[in-house]
């Protein structure tokens, strides 16, 4: 008798735990949808007033007059992200090839922890580094060669800081992709008399091209959303930058800088929430695409 009750208790416990866990899992899946909907809901007022195209292509940002043009901010984001990718892509690709194809295991043992540390450094500390080192360097050493005057708080400073920030992500995905490549492919190429560099160029890189593209998209979306570090070094002037020494005002920085005053001006909060929604949708799409590509690669090579 006692035993049966005990079993009933266990079965009930099993039932309860299973359903609580299922509920939490399903709940977590709705999370992204909830974020999207609530940001959209908050930005409805401004979308009712102006078309999305008008908002995205408008050049003038004067909240007091009710003018909300996102174009300068979008251009600012694109410039900074572009520079970051241009700087970090070759660095990461070459180092990842070196680390996964050439390097001695003990070099990996030294370098991998360092990349980990680099990944762990908070954005705001990157910003401090930018202010202490990158900005003065640009204004004192680099800019005088090209333009008459630059404060150093510029697109270039933002790009350099961002480039360093996305290195850990890019390198680790690259290495993962290269390591997932079956060793037989390399051996086949080497046994046909190709040198190691030829093998890397014609086999390793070509075979993992879609993965490299996915990693770059992942890095772009990381750079898109990076806020504090960029905000600290970019100068934050809401004009379309004309050169890399001009200040810029990326989208996340706009959001972070103005939340304090946005409640007092009509439509301001809707406009800012729209910028959050834009970031969310773009980054969600980029991430989903590149993750799907990476999953497919993993599955194909695992066979």
């Amino acid at each position: 008798m006692d035993k049966i009750r005990y079993n009933k208790y266990r079965q009930f416990k099993e039932f309860a735990i299973r359903h609580i866990m299922l509920f939490l899992t399903l709940l977590s899946l709705t999370f992204a949808i909830v974020i999207g909907i609530s940001l959209y809901y908050k930005s409805i007022p401004i979308l009712d007033q102006q078309s999305i195209w008008e908002l995205l292509s408008g050049r003038s940002w004067k909240p007091l007059k009710g003018e909300f043009g996102f174009f300068p901010f979008i251009m600012g984001t694109l410039w900074v992200t572009g520079i970051a990718i241009v700087i970090s892509l070759p660095l990461c690709l070459l180092s990842a090839i070196y680390l996964s194809e050439y390097a001695h295991p003990y070099i990996k043992k030294i370098v991998f922890p360092m990349i980990d540390v680099l990944a762990g450094i908070p954005p705001v500390v990157y910003g401090v580094w930018g202010i202490l080192v990158v900005v003065p360097f640009i204004s004192a050493e680099l800019a005088p060669h090209f333009v008459e005057f630059s404060t150093g708080y510029s697109v270039l400073a933002g790009g350099i800081v961002l480039a360093i920030m996305i290195i850990p992500l890019m390198i680790s995905v690259f290495i993962e992709i290269f390591d997932a490549l079956p060793g037989g492919l390399r051996e086949a190429s080497l046994s046909l008399g190709a040198t190691q560099w030829q093998t890397i160029k014609k086999v390793v890189v070509r075979k993992s091209f879609s993965g490299i593209a996915a990693a770059v998209v992942l890095a772009i979306s990381r750079a898109f959303g990076e806020t504090i570090a960029v905000l600290m070094v970019c100068g934050n002037v809401s004009e379309v930058p004309k050169s890399v020494f001009d200040p810029a005002y990326p989208l996340p920085a706009l959001l972070a800088n103005n939340y304090g005053e946005m409640m007092s001006i009509p439509m301001y909060d809707a406009a800012l929430m729209l910028s959050a929604l834009l970031l969310f949708v773009i980054i969600l799409a980029f991430n989903a695409i590149s993750r799907l590509v990476l999953i497919r690669i993993e599955r194909n090579f695992a066979l």
Binding site: S38, L39, T227, L255, L272, A276, A288
Partner: peptide, 30 residues
Amino acid sequence: LAQFTRLSFDVLFGIPSIVYGAFGFTIMVY
């Protein structure tokens, strides 16, 4: 379901913290 859950958290991992901040803020206002 498991694969979809993993994918969705991979994607959520990439969402920048400022978006979480803005979302948290809308909830707070609400």
